[in-house]
Design a protein around this nucleic acid. Structure first.
Length: 652
DNA sequence: AATCATTGTCATGTC
DNA sequence: GTGACATGACAATGA
């Protein structure tokens, strides 16, 4: 077993290193460094590495319906988690994690047993808080008909004896002089503790009433254990080669799955990219001239953005760039053409040095753009003019500034609105209506700065982003986007008609403090303030309604699943009931037969065999079996009441 | 034209 | 008191 432990540990380390090399944070190492916590997390919920918010943690911990989601991104999150689990499954040995943990930590106990049967009390004692074999048995016990059977088997394993060693059937041990009389109750008690399968075998293959030792099939955990033991004996010598081979074979799958894993953040990018590619606009040509801005913008949109339920994290930007680089190198070669290291440098600078720095850099990059194009953009954007920056602002600049001012509460202040407001009066409403582009609501809610410069989202290279392959829902996204564009445009148009230099999503998603500052600091008229508040209220309520409906659907789905489960349970219990009734009938017949046999061997005072018609065997509460004459009911009008009284006596 | 699903919006309550 | 959120109800819209 030391060899098995060694190879297993090394395999996990290799897998961890490989995943780390391709840019994915994995907590497999925690399985080796901290044995207990990750294993408990497997049972109780996800690792903290994958919990984006406490809300997600709660939702995952309770696994569904008791905690209401507040974020539509949960779909992406849980999809990512599921795919991550698949990655784990791909990279982990094919035996239960519980057994895995037990294997790693209970080598000594296994060595003691040498029988591949960890389900004993010793193992439980040595497990000391780990997933005990008993728990494994409990898990496997799910396949058992009911909990009573599980308890019975557990008692058997722990006690090493059959169910008749204790409990209701134990009192029969006292009767040494009436073995034949004892067999019936013993078997009956055994039947009471037998599983459905045993009852079936009892009925089909004859009633083994005289056998006090039940023959329970081995539990699954033992099978797993035996399988792994055989693996460890025969195959562990090749584990060094097996692990890398398996990883290589699964490279593509793992990579895609890892991409899904990363897509916990990248899902935002994907969606942004999808919507970007769909919102083709004349500004596309402009965007094509500066791929670095796209990369920066895309990455920024994915990592600096934050949903209201998520903590904004600019610190994730360097990691984001690393992920992009690694994925680009590893599996998404198509992206290599449109990636530039300078982009990632800018991303890193964005994350490390703050947005002011990146603004300057982006402005430098804007210098290479056709001034006429910039002028067009200026007139088209309607929101993102950075007049305060001392020049025509690029959409990327406005993107960053608006994003930072609106949603990066920690590192960025509300720096973008004043300049935007100053530049706004120069714009006409006609420009807004003709060039302003409504944005995907769901995207912008969580990537809330992406709509301030929509023209820069339509670069064709965006479609080649690796995230594109991660989430392929072009039809649904397009429809959803189209619908949301149409719906959102009303408030947006109202805002623009009222010369409000903010998009609806900006208004909706900016913190309340910032919103109040905007209301107070821009000299809005009462009508504008009312409209701003209405837009904010409606936008938030719209999201709330979406979440509410989603929760309602989830609740309905959960209830439907619960109904199906309960129906299945009811059917199973009914089958067990019928089977039990058959068993009882068979046992009753057997008892009658044995009673006749016993009575036939007994003699009365005259030396005649006892007639079963006149005598019967009764088992008392103390376990004694006595011969009693049969009390036949007299035929009278009170027969019914006497029968009832006799029934009552029997019950007593 | 009727029906249904989806979505936005309002009103109201709760925290 | 205010803002955020949840939710029922209603209306608009498209399939």
């Amino acid at each position: 077993m030391q060899i098995a432990k060694k190879y297993f540990t090394e395999g996990l380390i290799q897998f961890t290193i490989l995943l780390s090399l391709i840019g994915v944070r994995v907590d497999v190492d925690s399985y080796l460094n901290g044995y207990f916590t990750p294993l408990l997390e497997i049972n109780l919920g996800p690792s903290s590495a994958y919990i984006q918010t406490p809300f997600h943690s709660l939702r995952d911990t309770l696994d569904g319906y008791s905690v209401h989601p507040k974020c539509p991104e949960l779909d992406y999150f849980f999809a990512s988690r599921r795919l991550l689990d698949e990655v784990r499954t791909l990279g982990s040995p094919r035996f239960p994690t519980h057994l895995n943990a037990w294997l790693v930590h209970q080598v000594s106990a296994v060595d003691k047993t040498e029988s591949g049967q960890p389900s004993n009390s010793d193992s439980i004692d040595t497990s000391s808080g780990l997933e005990s074999p008993g728990d494994d048995a409990s898990d496997d016990g799910q396949h058992l008909p009911d909990s009573g059977q599980e308890e019975c088997q557990t008692a058997q394993r722990h006690g090493g004896q059959g169910p008749c060693t204790s409990g209701a059937c134990g009192f029969l041990k006292d009767e040494d002089d009436a073995i034949a009389k004892e067999e019936e109750p013993v078997s009956f008690g055994q039947l009471a503790h037998s599983s459905t399968l045993e009852q079936e075998s009892l009925l089909n293959g004859g009633i083994a009433l005289s056998d006090p030792v039940p023959h329970h099939p081995p539990i699954d955990i033992e099978q797993h254990w035996s399988s792994f033991l055989s693996l460890s004996v025969t195959d562990l010598d090749d584990l060094d080669s097996l692990v890398p081979e398996r990883l290589l074979d699964l490279d593509s799958d793992i990579t895609s799955a890892i991409s899904h894993d990363v897509s916990l953040r990248d899902a935002m990018v994907t969606r942004a990219g999808a919507s970007e590619s769909m919102q083709a606009r004349p500004g596309q040509a402009i965007a094509q001239q500066q791929p670095p801005f796209f990369r920066l913008e895309s990455t920024n949109s994915s990592y600096s953005d934050s949903s209201p339920g998520m903590t904004p994290s600019l610190a994730a930007l360097p990691f984001a760039s690393v992920c992009n680089v690694t994925r680009n190198v590893s599996s998404h070669g198509t992206l290599s053409g449109c990636l530039d290291e300078a982009v990632f440098d800018q991303i890193n600078l964005l994350g490390l040095e703050g947005l002011d720095t990146i603004d300057v850099q982006l402005l430098d990059g804007v210098g290479s753009i056709d001034p006429q194009v910039l002028e067009d953009l200026d007139s088209d954007s309607g929101l993102s003019l950075e007049s305060g920056s001392g020049g025509p602002a690029s959409p990327g600049t406005s993107e960053v500034s608006s994003s930072s001012s609106s949603y990066c509460e920690d590192e960025c202040g509300a720096t973008g609105y004043s300049s935007e407001a100053d530049s706004f009066p120069s714009k006409g409403i006609a420009d807004y209506t003709t060039t302003w582009t409504p944005v995907d609501l769901s995207e912008s809610v969580w990537h809330d700065h992406s709509y301030s410069s929509p023209a820069f989202f339509h670069q064709p290279s965006v479609a080649t982003l690796p995230h594109k392959g991660i989430k392929e829902e072009p039809v649904s996204d397009e429809e959803e986007q189209r619908f949301e564009e149409r719906e959102l445009s009303r408030d947006e148009l109202r805002a623009r008609a009222m010369c409000i230099p903010f998009s609806a999503l900006q208004i909706v998603n900016m913190p309340v403090e910032e919103f109040l500052e905007v209301l107070e600091g821009h000299g809005f008229s009462p009508e504008q303030v009312t409209l701003l508040r209405d837009i904010r209220r409606r936008g938030k309520n719209k999201l709330a309604a979406q979440n509410c409906r989603k929760r309602k659907l989830d609740a309905i789905t959960g209830l439907q699943e619960e109904v199906a489960r309960l129906q299945a349970q009811r059917d199973r219990l009914l089958r067990e009931k019928q089977l039990t009734a058959k068993t009882m009938c068979a046992v009753g017949q057997q008892i009658e037969q044995l009673t006749r046999d016993v009575l036939a061997r007994l003699r009365d005072d005259s030396g005649q065999p006892l007639s079963p018609d006149r005598f019967t065997l009764q088992c008392g509460a103390n376990g004694r079996v006595v011969v009693q004459p049969v009390r036949r009911p007299t035929v009278s009008t009170t027969a019914g009441s006497k029968t009832d009284k006799r029934k009552k006596d029997k019950k007593q």
